[in-house]
Amino acid sequence: MTPQVRSTPELPLVVKMRTRGLSVFYGEKQAVHEVDLEVGVNQVLALIGPSGCGKSTFLRSLNRMNDTVDGVRVLGEVDLDGRPIYGPDVDPVVVRRHVGMVFQRSNPFPKSIFDNVAYGLRIAGMRDKAELALRVEKALRHAALWDEVKDRLFESGLGLSGGQQQRLCIARALAVEPEVLLMDEPASALDPIATARLEDLISELRAELTIVIVTHNMQQAARVSQRTAFFYMGKLVEVGETQRMFTRPKEQATEDYISGRFG
C-alpha cells in the first residue's frame, strides 16, 4: 500500500498448469481470446471479472470439460506439469482424473453419501471394500465433513444442507486425489456461514493441491487466493499476486472493477 514497496518483484512461480494462446469458441462466437496464464503449484488462483467475461469458460478448458459441450472449439495450448492436455493422443477422461472440478450448484448424485464419495474411485476400478472405506473417510475428513456425516454415510447425499452438499461434492472430487481442483463459483449458492467454512477449507486444501477458483465475490478472492487474474470481455486483462492486484492494480479496468465502478 505504501509507495516504497511498489517495486517489490513478485515471488517466482512453480508452474503447475500453463495456458498459451488459449481461445475458446462457441460456434462462431469467441468466448476466450488468446489467454496466456500460469497456475502456481500449491496456490489458489482466483479468476475474477464481470458475468460473461469468459472466466468460467476458461476454467472449463483446464480439464477439458468444454469438450462435453456441443459446438465448442478450443485453440491454443494447455499444459499440466509440462504435458499438453489437448495433445492428439491425450484422453480427456484421464485428464479429468488429475484435474477435478466443483461446480457452482452443488450436484451430489442421488446416491448415499458413501457412494457419492466412492464414485470416482469405483469407476477407476477400485473394488477393495476396506480400501474404499478408508479413502472415503479420508476424503470426507479432508472436506471437513466427516464429523457431520459419519453416522449417516448410507443416507442420501441429497438429504444434506446446501453447504454440506457442496462440501460433499468437494470430498467426491478429492477422493480421486487430483492434483488440481477447479472451482466454479463454489460458494455462490451458500449462506455466509457455509461460505466461511468453505473458504477455510480452500485455504487448508492448498497445502496439498493446486486450486483455481472462479468467484464474483471480491472479498472472497482477496481472502482465499494468492494470485488473482482479472478477465474482461474474454481477455485476460491483468494477473498478479492478489495483494498487489487489490491494492495497486496496473490496469485502469482492473481498478474500476475491483472498486465496484462496473461489473
Binding site: R96, P110, A173, V176
Partner: peptide, 9 residues
C-alpha cells in the same frame, strides 16, 4: 449429474 460424472473422470 452428467457433468459431475464426467468431471470425475
Amino acid at each position: 449429474y452428467r457433468t459431475a460424472a464426467l468431471a470425475l473422470g
